[in-house]
Design a protein around this nucleic acid. Structure first.
Lengths: 226, 226
DNA sequence: TCCTCATTGTGATAATTATCACAAACGTAT
DNA sequence: ATACGTTTGTGATAATTATCACAATGAGGA
């Protein structure tokens, strides 16, 4: 697939004419990262905008004592790096390749030019940031007032929405992340994740199948926990 | 002060020429809210953009069982309501007037027109949302991996940055919010806030003075808790 | 296959924090 | 000044969850 075709799938570019899309595509450079590689380091200067062509990355923050908080897991056609381009602050998070991944990159100045030249992109980007902010707010709410069972369930819902496939009410999350990663997103411990998923299985709400997790009745599940 | 002069203080409008500023100012309508009044209700449709002319508001989310999570407290020249204008979703939070407040409002269509007409506004708004997203991420981090003492201290730091006045290293937060509000921001209980602030006083890090709180050495305090 | 390393499961215990109950202090209006 | 409603302080207790320790299971390579 051509670079322009990839861009077509990215919400913030999808409104553009083919012509403009090609112009932007020409400015982008492709890079590859092996699983586990650090793509962006916290504290480094933000000079690049990234779009995920294939694979997945995790957005994390690291505390002094080494504990890791996972803010999000991003997949194909998601983008990142825009934050520090926009507000000029340093990186606020680490980005680590979660699988072998290919990304498209755009330089700071090309990115900012795009925003000035195509107001539609800026507006689409505003929309995207609004959505993310909304998700963050929900995340904050859940961390603030739920017990660990709820927090873990809500984390599973996030995975289902981002990585899941639906088949008549049943959602299958293929390749459920490690318990440690789920714990780092839900703000709890790995052991509690283990015990809680077992509990959800006993309540007949979910079922594990090798590396996959099935949520039997997604609507009901959401109702129960959010 | 004229409406245009108020707008001049708002980051997203500060780049505009006087002329353009006046055009926008003409479209804005002023409204007043008494302390405690609900300005925006969760779940209602988002049709208005607001700028705070004077006073302060709190941004909250409410859970089924009535508990409240405070996402932010906004003051003069801050704005809100842009989220659902941008992504078309319903309101994600309640906005309650925290003091007697005056706000300027702009209709949905006028707001979106502004963005199309003045790309600078869109870019400045992107910047602002990026900053908010960054704060949300920090908030998530602190809720995820800190104990209640840290979370409360970090909440005090947020207040200091938004409401505090500095005098040679010492920050005074005038009119510290109620313990219950602090608890709702820090994701803990009112009693724990009471005990923790006492603890911080015993450690000679802060001092209460009637309704005010003084942080003796702000840099050190920040170092300790973030 | 067997071995090894990574991941998951689970019990016991300790630490943290919420909750309840009530007293003290504070603010405001009469 | 008094009285009332709101906010804060604090002890006792219960509930939740983290942590530690180790066993069980699984996945990938020699």
């Amino acid at each position: 697939m051509s670079t322009a075709q990839h861009l077509r799938n990215v919400p913030i570019f999808s409104d553009l004419k083919d012509n403009d899309l090609n112009i932007i595509a020409d400015k982008m450079v492709s890079r590859s990262y092996d699983k586990g590689k650090m793509i962006l380091l916290e504290e480094s200067q933000g000079e690049t905008f990234f779009i995920i062509k294939s694979g997945a990355v995790k957005v994390t923050r690291q505390s002094d004592d080494g504990r890791e908080v996972i803010l999000a897991i991003l997949g194909e056609s998601d983008f990142f790096g825009e934050m520090s381009l926009l507000d000029g602050e340093g990186r606020s998070a680490n980005i680590i390749s979660n699988e072998d991944s290919e990304v498209l990159t755009l330089s700071r100045s090309d990115f900012l030019d795009c925003l000035e030249t195509y107001p539609k992109i800026a507006i689409a980007l505003l929309e995207e940031l609004a959505i993310r902010l909304r998700k963050s707010d929900q995340h904050i709410e859940s961390l603030s007032l739920s017990d660990s069972e709820h927090r873990i369930a809500i984390t599973l819902i996030r995975f289902a929405q981002e990585l899941g496939t639906i088949k008549k009410g049943e959602v299958t999350i293929k390749n459920l992340p490690f318990q440690q990663d789920i714990a780092n997103m839900a703000g709890t411990s790995r052991e509690t994740v283990s015990r809680t998923i077992k509990l959800l299985e006993e309540k007949n709400l979910v079922k594990k199948n090798k590396k996959d997790l099935i949520i039997f009745n997604f609507d009901e599940f959401r109702q129960l926990f959010s």
